[in-house]
Simulated scan of single mutants.
Amino acid sequence: MESYYPIMLKLAGKKVVVVGGGRVAERKISGLIATKANITVIAPEISLELQLFVKTGKIEWLAKIFSDEDIEGAFLVFAATNDRELNQKIKDATEANSLITIADDPEESDFHVPAKVQRGRLTVAVSTGGASPTLARKIRSQLEQEFDERYEDYLNFLLAARQQILQEVKDPSLKSKLLNQIVTPQFLNSKNRLADFQALYKELIHH
């Protein structure tokens, strides 16, 4: 069995084409909007939610039947129709340097979109390699309970604290100690992380 290589992609400005205008396409596009990719949906008709994305300028809609030139130069291609033959045609037309995922054929897909938990800068992704998206969603629900809304502010704190530590602390041992101390339940649950961090910082620096 081939294994997949997990990766976080920066899609801003990249051409992404979604073929299909139903619920599957809707889910894929909803997850793509925040990436600032240049998203084009190809379908004679699209859902009401996708029409709203078009009206607000978040995606482009080509109201037509798919043709090969629609995916020329695409970085990612989503074959999200309910027509297996059409999905295969899209696969056949995909250029060698494009990546495609096929809604009804995970084995022939170049990538899968994982179920994910997003808390600000924190992303936790779960994939079953196309074996069971349902199981991936169940695991995601469990992770949503563990990694709750506190993590959004916590990650912003960790970013600021880490930058300060890396800029100001030269001693490798002390640097490591500080970086490890801030990744503890004490700081996750703190009501005033910045004050607690400054107190810890002064204590260890002058120890």
Rank of each mutant, 00 (worst) to 15 (best):
M1Y: 06
P6W: 13
L11I: 09
V16N: 06
V16R: 06
G20L: 06
G21M: 06
R23P: 00
R23S: 15
A25N: 05
I33R: 05
I39K: 10
T40H: 05
V41S: 04
I42W: 09
E45H: 10
Q51I: 01
L52C: 00
L62G: 00
K64I: 02
I65T: 05
I65C: 00
I71Y: 09
L76K: 08
T81N: 04
R84P: 02
R84I: 14
E85Y: 02
L86Y: 02
N87C: 03
K89M: 04
K91E: 10
N97Q: 13
S98I: 07
S98P: 07
S98L: 07
L99I: 01
I102R: 01
I102G: 02
A103T: 04
P106Y: 01
E108H: 06
D110W: 05
D110N: 14
D110A: 04
V113M: 11
P114E: 08
R119Y: 05
L122C: 07
T123I: 15
V124P: 09
V126M: 10
V126T: 06
S127A: 10
T128C: 11
T128D: 10
G130T: 05
I139Y: 07
L143P: 09
L143Y: 13
F147T: 13
R150Y: 09
D153N: 15
N156G: 00
F157P: 04
A160G: 00
A160Y: 00
A161R: 03
K170F: 12
S176H: 10
Q181S: 14
Q181R: 12
I182P: 01
T184P: 00
P185F: 04
P185Y: 04
F187E: 05
N189T: 12
K191S: 14
L194T: 15
Q198A: 02
K202T: 14
